[in-house]
Amino acid sequence: MENVKPSISVIISTYNSEEWLEKVLWGFQQQSFKDFEVVIADDGSGPRTKELIRRMKDSVFYKIVHVWQEDEGFQKSKILNKALMGCSADYIIMTDGDCIPRNDFVAVHHLNSAPGFYISGGYCMLPIHISKLIDKEDIEKQNCFNIHWLKSNGIPKKFKKSKLTVKGHVSKFLNSFTPTNASWNGHNSSGWKSDILKVNGFDERMQYGGQDRELGERLMNSGIKGKQLRYSAVCVHLDHKRSYRTLESIAKNKVIRRAVKTSKCSWTPYGIAK
């Protein structure tokens, strides 16, 4: 049974964020749909991350694959391409090591997967004090998705709670009528591995600032449509600093995305196949 291919591979990106990554891995331990593996795309973390992954492998029901590269600055596109090649499944969910998935997260992606489509999910950003407060028990009990628990722990009044409070027909209605277009988001998206390989994966010239959306734009140029599930496929996003965010990388990425939109190209020569 060890060699049976899972239905889904979940790619989780990380970099020296063991406290957050552990919470995310416990989140996947709570999933109702269990036929998946986790592939950790590690952009050069130190030994503490490696030790956490070793420990978690003995504590969770799912298989964990650790794909690591040397730390050469923010090279998320490059490590995601490597992680893609390390996936066993035909269908890929991508998320980040600071996003705890609700217990129906994988099930929603699996249920809504369809040929010719990719899925765009949603997230709720939590403030830093609640991000730190959440522990293993809160994840097991799904407290971090409970608006009453969040309010009791001082969630700001401006917090957008609708993704956590709607389900069923209401969530389907909001998915259909939200003004936000479906886009490939690094924190919560999924698609067929064959479709991603067809456009040659992520553009490795791109650092922080829209490199995930650029992949989605090339997928759409290739004929793949985005399916909006921001009110159904839900995770909570833990707060942290972003020292890797630079105006230079954002400006460079905008130029690349503009060229993709203008040319309507689907293939990047700077992706998996060089």
Rank of each mutant, 00 (worst) to 15 (best):
H237R: 07
S152Q: 15
K161E: 15
Q29W: 01
W184A: 11
P115Y: 07
S17K: 08
L21Y: 05
V260S: 08
I92Y: 01
D239G: 01
P179L: 09
F36C: 09
K193Q: 12
I40M: 05
K63Y: 11
E51M: 14
I53N: 01
S152D: 15
A273C: 06
K167I: 00
N81H: 02
S266K: 04
G97V: 00
K82L: 13
E214K: 09
A182N: 12
W184D: 10
S88W: 02
D138V: 01
Y231G: 04
V24H: 09
Q207S: 15
F61Y: 12
D195G: 02
H240F: 09
V38Y: 05
K241M: 13
L133W: 13
E51W: 05
A107E: 15
L52Y: 05
I79D: 06
V67Y: 01
Y270G: 03
V108T: 14
F28M: 00
V60H: 11
K252Y: 08
P127S: 08
I250R: 14
V108Q: 08
D43P: 03
H110G: 06
F145Y: 12
F36Y: 05
N146A: 10
A89E: 06
I11W: 09
F33G: 12
N81I: 09
T268R: 08
K172N: 15
N112W: 11
S45R: 12
V106N: 00
F28D: 06
R230H: 09
Q29L: 11
H110C: 13
K50P: 10
F105M: 05
I64N: 10
V39S: 10
N143C: 08
V24Y: 08
V234H: 10
H169L: 15
L238W: 02
V38Q: 04
S183L: 11
D203L: 00
T165Y: 10
P47A: 05
L215D: 08
S266N: 10
Q211N: 12
R258N: 13
R218W: 08
V236F: 13
K261G: 06
R218E: 04
K34Q: 15
W184S: 01
K193S: 02
C87D: 02
I224K: 00
R257F: 00
S189Q: 04
P6C: 05
C144Y: 05
V236A: 00
N103M: 10
L150K: 02
E22K: 09
G201C: 10
K23P: 11
L52I: 09
R230G: 02
I12M: 12
A83V: 07
Y208K: 13
P269T: 06
D43L: 11
V199D: 11
N253P: 12
F173Q: 06
G186S: 04
V108D: 14
E2L: 05
D96I: 00
N153A: 07
T95K: 01
E37F: 00
N175P: 11
D71Y: 15
G122C: 13
W184N: 02
D98S: 03
L174F: 13
K136M: 06
H110M: 15
I12F: 07
S183D: 14
F36M: 08
H110I: 03
G154S: 04
K198F: 04
I119H: 14
V106Y: 08
I134A: 08
W184T: 03
V65R: 01
D90Q: 11
M56G: 08
G122I: 04
W192P: 01
K63T: 12
S59M: 11
R258Y: 04
Y244I: 00
I250Q: 10
S113D: 09
K241I: 04
Y15V: 00
D58Y: 06
T262I: 04
M56W: 03
S7Q: 11
